[in-house]
Design a binder for these strands. Structure first.
Length: 841
DNA sequence: AGCACGCCGACT
DNA sequence: GTCGGCGTGCTC
């Protein structure tokens, strides 16, 4: 109750009659939180970050997260109650809610979408609509007639207590049983309800132990052996147990028991085991096991080279005044050792550490190395992890089991509460940017924000900084620490340009390989050394075409040709997932001369086998590393010397240290260079430098052979000299002249509709609305998207180049939201979908 | 997004 | 009539 001054006061010493409300974040793309009423019974046990179950809409039940607790009743509607609280402790902390809100605002999406990306789906609950018989219902006395199909449902419900909504349709052979169910509900014959199920299930293993009195009395045990001596199978089981668990030496050993699978592995009879359990000699019990092994940490002393020590000190110095530091260390300069030292120090101070790695680097040596140092306090967050594994990492961070996490892009969402340091390794990697779905965030930038929220430091490490980061370092926004020496005085490789066109003219180009590259490979093979061949993935998608007329199978719903998937032997659309059989004859001319051309790497692999029949050639790309451990296996093979040549995409450039690699070849550098994108120069520099870094580490000088049609391009020269700074300056003047990032902020808006005309009109209209926003900017387009149609939706793009100064971007985004609302308000454009991508790639 | 509701054409 | 296809509007 409120008095005149707005104060609350107690009635008879009881608690004030003020209802408590919660703003709940729900996984729906609606730009707000939803206010629910907290029932009295739950008031004490609720706060920010708890998962709750609420009803949303007519019937659907959803998991949400409490974003705010307050006492302001909503004006326009009656708040529904929270149905249930799922947790004893919050699974999300207030800092995370702040982080989510920031992300939604910055990347122009909804907080529900952020939550969707942040929570492992094992923590999200789904509800399923079910029906059951209404206990009040009696068909005899009911005044409603039940028709034939309704009877089918009712009969089914006498067999089973409940039926899933979807199954009712199947039962009747209908697409949807909606009408029937509705009618039955109206007749009060059935009840509809929502069933929620927890998705996460802990890993449970069965254990066996000896029961009393045998466990504590030798005499009893001897008696037992006498009685079962005629049953050799049972005796064997018992002996196996006693052999593994010396019961009388240590009674706790028996308490903990023996994993049941030990018996089956030892070939003991499982039925005898069962009998012993039944006869109460042994007992079976369940133990919840972590999905992650316990690994002891060895406090390995790592001796830093003097230049690394110096680098470390510089980083720490710069952290005094700067939140973020860019560590620009050439390949082989030993950034990992520096990370380890820093991580150790921060962990000792009691704070948490997050190390972000690009996806493809996560399966490599660096992780194994870190694990040796940090053991079980290090959590790994993988993109190939199952749902259950993700939930366990999440809970591990929550419980404090993991104070240090190494992970991919999405690990910025883990429930850290006291980060002290965030490291982003390979900071320049474009894979830190999420394209689809929303939130379309750049994990590096988001991590810097996250660190700021924690008042933590951020270290960006790379051999080839992104221009954005280097620019920030130059402008004193970030600290900057260069590391120019290679560990162990390893030499820079020798660079050789191979002119594709010149060789072609002289007929020296064989199966895409120039003479010089072939010679270098042969040399290496003769010396028992290894070779890496790099092929860019872009532009080498596998496809199928007709040899007679050139027909290429295309997706019916999208503007792209179908790609050939070797492992499943089918044609697939990358954009909508459409699948088709590999065509046996040409649809256009009927010819049966259809050929399928695989990935670029596949072709290169074949060519190499033909050119060097004695060499053992391996391949590593998306196709060959689809399974969880395939990646490691190929690398192990190569590392052990079971392969002479390894062909691969980007993957082979990540964190590999193979001493025996002396030759690195880039088959087609032009594909990297001439990509229609303002970042293509930057990318080319980065990729070539990274690939080159794999050549000749320790004591041998390696060679890097680059094949190109334009060997005189200035990028190559700059890469050879390792002259990043100069290359940066050249490119940056271009970017400044043509208004590219980092001089402006790019925002891409994509307009989608299933009718080309409407999409175009809407795009034009939106462009005009945006042009009217009163900030400094350039609006380009609308233009048909690179891929004009996806999933039967026509796409048009707008690109906004925005002044970055002050609060212009924030202001603009606010106005942009208004424009989008205004557009969708017009009745012609009601079903137009719009996607906003801030800082697109 | 997901789901209901309502309107409409097609087919028994 | 009844099925199922879509467009539209709403969700605390």
């Amino acid at each position: 109750m409120e008095n005149l001054f707005g104060d609350t006061f107690d009635l008879d010493g009881e608690e004030a009659e003020v209802a408590v409300f919660a703003d709940v974040i729900l996984p729906v793309p609606i730009p707000k939180m939803f206010t629910y009423r907290i029932p009295r019974s739950l008031e004490k046990a609720i706060g920010i970050g708890y998962r709750v179950i609420v009803q949303f809409g007519r019937k659907k039940v959803l998991t949400g997260i409490i974003g705010k607790v307050h006492q302001k009743p909503p004006q326009a509607y009656e708040a529904k109650p929270i149905l249930e609280i799922l947790d004893e402790q919050p699974v999300v902390n207030p800092l995370q809610i702040k982080f989510w809100s920031w992300m939604a605002e910055y990347y122009c999406c909804h907080i529900g979408e952020v939550m969707n990306a942040a929570l492992p789906s094992g923590l999200k609950l789904n509800s399923e609509s079910k029906i059951q018989l209404n206990p009040e219902f009696d068909q005899q006395t009911s005044s409603f007639p039940i028709d034939e199909r309704e009877q089918v449902i009712l009969d089914a419900l006498t067999q089973k207590d409940e039926l899933a909504y979807e199954d009712c349709g199947k039962l009747l052979g209908l697409k949807s049983a909606h009408r029937i169910i509705k009618s039955l509900v109206l007749k009060e014959a059935i009840l509809v309800y929502e069933q929620v199920r927890e998705k996460y299930s802990p890993k449970v293993e069965n254990f066996i132990r000896l029961k009393e009195p045998y466990a504590s009395s030798k005499a009893e045990l001897e008696k037992l052996f006498n009685t079962i001596s005629k049953k050799p199978k049972q005796e064997e089981v018992l002996l196996k147990y006693l052999q593994e668990i010396p019961v009388f030496q240590n009674s706790t050993k028996n308490e903990n028991g023996l994993n049941k699978k030990v018996f089956s592995e030892a070939g003991c009879s499982t039925s005898s085991l069962k009998t012993l359990v039944k006869n109460e000699v042994l007992e079976e019990f369940k133990v919840i096991k972590s999905r992650f092994e316990q690994i002891p940490s060895k406090d390995l002393e790592i001796e830093l080279a003097p230049f690394q020590k110096e680098g470390l000190e510089k980083i720490k110095n710069q952290f005094e005044s700067k939140q973020t530091v860019l560590l620009h260390g050439i390949t082989g300069s030993g950034k990992t050792e520096i990370y380890i030292e820093l991580i150790k120090e921060v962990l000792e101070s009691g704070s948490q550490v997050l190390l972000l790695l690009p996806e493809i680097a996560l399966t490599t040596q660096i992780v194994a190395r870190l694990q040796k140092v940090f053991g079980s306090k290090m959590g790994i967050f993988h993109s190939k992890y199952s749902d259950n594994e993700r939930v366990e990492v999440w809970q591990g961070v929550l419980s404090g089991r993991f104070s240090f996490v190494v992970g991919v892009r999405s690990s910025i969402f883990l429930p850290f509460d006291s980060l002290g340091l965030v490291i982003i390794d390979e900071e320049h990697e474009p894979s830190f940017k999420q394209f689809d779905p929303a939130p379309r965030f750049q994990a590096r930038d988001a991590a810097i924000m996250l660190a700021w929220l924690h008042q933590a430091k951020t270290l960006l490490g790379t051999a080839t900084p992104s221009f954005e980061s280097y620019y920030n370092a130059k402008n004193q926004k970030y600290g900057y620490v260069p590391l120019n020496k290679r560990f162990g005085e390893a030499q820079l490789p020798e660079f050789v340009m191979a002119d594709i066109l010149a060789d072609k003219k002289k007929n020296l180009l064989k199966l895409d390989f120039t003479r010089i590259l072939r010679e270098k490979i042969q040399e290496a093979l003769n010396q028992q050394e290894q070779v890496l061949i790099f092929q860019n993935r872009r532009g080498y998608a596998p496809f199928t075409s007709c040899d007679e007329c050139g027909w290429i199978p295309e997706c019916e719903q999208c503007d792209v040709s179908l790609t050939y998937h070797q492992y499943s032997k089918e044609m697939r659309c990358h954009y909508c997932g459409f699948k088709d059989k590999v065509p046996q004859s040409c649809v256009a001319c009927g010819s049966n001369k259809i050929s399928t051309i695989g990935m670029g790497t596949e072709r290169i692999e074949e060519s190499l086998s033909l050119l060097f029949p004695e060499a053992r050639v391996g391949r590593m790309d998306l196709d060959t590393t689809r399974s969880k451990y395939a990646y490691q296996k190929i690398l192990e093979d190569f590392g052990a010397g079971n392969l002479d040549i390894l062909v691969g995409t980007q993957m082979i450039t990540k964190g590999l240290d193979f001493d025996k690699v002396t030759v690195v070849g880039i088959v087609d550098a032009d594909r990297i260079l001439h990509f229609p994108d303002f970042r293509s120069g930057e990318r080319a520099f980065q990729q070539i430098t990274q690939v080159a870094g794999r050549a000749g580490r320790r004591n041998r000088r390696g060679s890097v052979i680059i094949q190109s049609r334009r060997p005189d391009h200035f990028v190559f020269d700059q890469v050879f000299k390792g002259d990043y700074a100069n290359f940066y300056l050249t490119e940056m003047s271009e970017r400044q002249r043509f208004f590219y990032p980092p001089f402006v902020k790019n925002i891409k808006v994509t307009i989608k509709h299933k009718e080309s005309q409407i999409a175009q009109k809407a795009a034009n209209h939106l462009a005009n609305l945006i042009k009217d926003i009163q900030v400094k900017k350039i609006v380009l387009g609308p233009e048909k998207s690179l891929i004009g149609k996806i999933k039967n939706q026509y796409l048009f793009d707008l690109l906004i180049k925005l002044d970055k100064t002050g609060n212009v971007p924030a202001l603009f985004k606010l106005e942009l939201r208004r424009c989008l609302e205004e557009l969708n308000f017009q009745k012609d454009f009601k079903s137009v979908r719009i996607v906003v991508d801030v800082d697109p790639y």
